[in-house]
């Protein structure tokens, strides 16, 4: 067997492309194998993520019939109608308000819980489990329980108020209180997950940093401000992004607690999409709204990356 001398190709972008190595690669067959391993994911992503994304975009430019199938191309008409409809504007406003109510509160509460639960105490595992427990409680179950808590006559909240001599509040039926009540439920529901992630972030901070600070005689608040928060910033960054996206996607609580009422006060965007698409079967308008939601979430992610990253300390 004669081995021919091949000149080395200059500027080839990685070693495997060199003439001499190609046959070896072909023999090992890494490339076909790779696609085989990726195939299930690729097919599923194509069918259930990418195709629907483009299909939604397409649907948003069409009117649809009673079965929800596209009929007439109307360009940006759906968007125009959507953006000028008071129902959508109300729903967008409620959603923003809802995000404002829930995200900062959840994160601050979860951070306090995580800081407390990060102390090395006997039986701390028990408290950690309790604090994270809402992660294991489904939207449906917690909504049903809160529905009971909010019940104007039998619910505990109004019972407590009456003990204090205050008139009961119609938590879910009063337009002034409904969004607050839904937010309360949501904060409680998300506290577990947020707590768990922040606790993990705290535990990943190098113990030596604290030991050194202790030797130098730094107080608790100084340590919190100068070590804990900066070191935790990547986790906080992640948690803020995830919580905001989660808040935008809220659905179950609305469906069970208020059905978007009273008078659209809690008609958050996903619930509004659901009603358009699956109750009125107006896929065109619903798709337009989906695209608006998608762009909002994309914007948040982009903004977080742009502004969040600067303040974040990465290890």
């Amino acid at each position: 067997m004669v081995m021919e001398q091949t000149e080395i190709k200059e500027g080839a972008d990685f070693p495997a492309t060199n003439a001499r190595e190609q046959p070896i690669n072909r023999l090992f067959g890494t490339q076909p194998a790779a696609w085989l391993y990726l195939l299930p994911s690729l097919i599923l992503f194509a069918v259930f993520v990418f195709y629907p994304l483009f299909r939604t975009l397409q649907l948003s430019f069409f009117l649809s019939d009673s079965k929800g199938l596209p009929t007439v191309f109307v360009g940006f008409n759906n968007y125009a109608r959507l953006l000028s409809s008071p129902e959508f504007l109300a729903s967008a406003g409620s959603t923003l308000l809802f995000v404002l109510y829930t995200v900062p509160t959840t994160i601050i509460l979860a951070l306090i819980l995580a800081l407390l639960a990060n102390e090395k105490l006997k039986g701390i595992g028990f408290f950690r489990t309790i604090f994270s427990s809402s992660m294991g409680i489904s939207v449906a179950a917690s909504s049903v329980v809160w529905l009971f808590i909010f019940n104007p006559s039998a619910g505990i909240l109004n019972r407590l108020l009456s003990l204090l001599g205050v008139t009961g509040i119609n938590w879910l039926a009063d337009p002034n209180w409904a969004l607050f009540s839904v937010s309360l439920t949501t904060i409680w529901l998300h506290l577990g997950f947020t707590f768990l992630i922040l606790l993990g972030g705290l535990q990943n901070i190098d113990e030596h940093l604290y030991e050194n600070a202790q030797i130098e005689g730094c107080g608790y608040w100084y340590r919190l401000r100068r070590i804990t928060l900066p070191m935790l910033s990547p986790t906080l960054f992640f948690v803020i992004t995830v919580s905001m996206i989660d808040a935008f996607q809220t659905f179950g609580q609305i469906d069970l607690l208020t059905k978007g009422g009273p008078g659209n006060a809690t008609n958050l965007i996903v619930y509004s999409i659901y009603q358009k698409a699956f109750i009125n079967f107006d896929f065109g308008m619903a798709s337009a709204e989906v695209i608006v939601l998608f762009l909002c979430i994309l914007l948040i992610t982009a903004l977080q990356f742009k502004f969040g990253e600067r303040k974040v300390h990465y290890q």
């Binding site: 993520v49 629907p52 939604t56 996903v270 999409i273 698409a277 896929f283 989906v290």
Partner: peptide, 8 residues
Amino acid sequence: PWETSMIP
């Protein structure tokens, strides 16, 4: 978000 692909 999952909702984007929900309808199709």
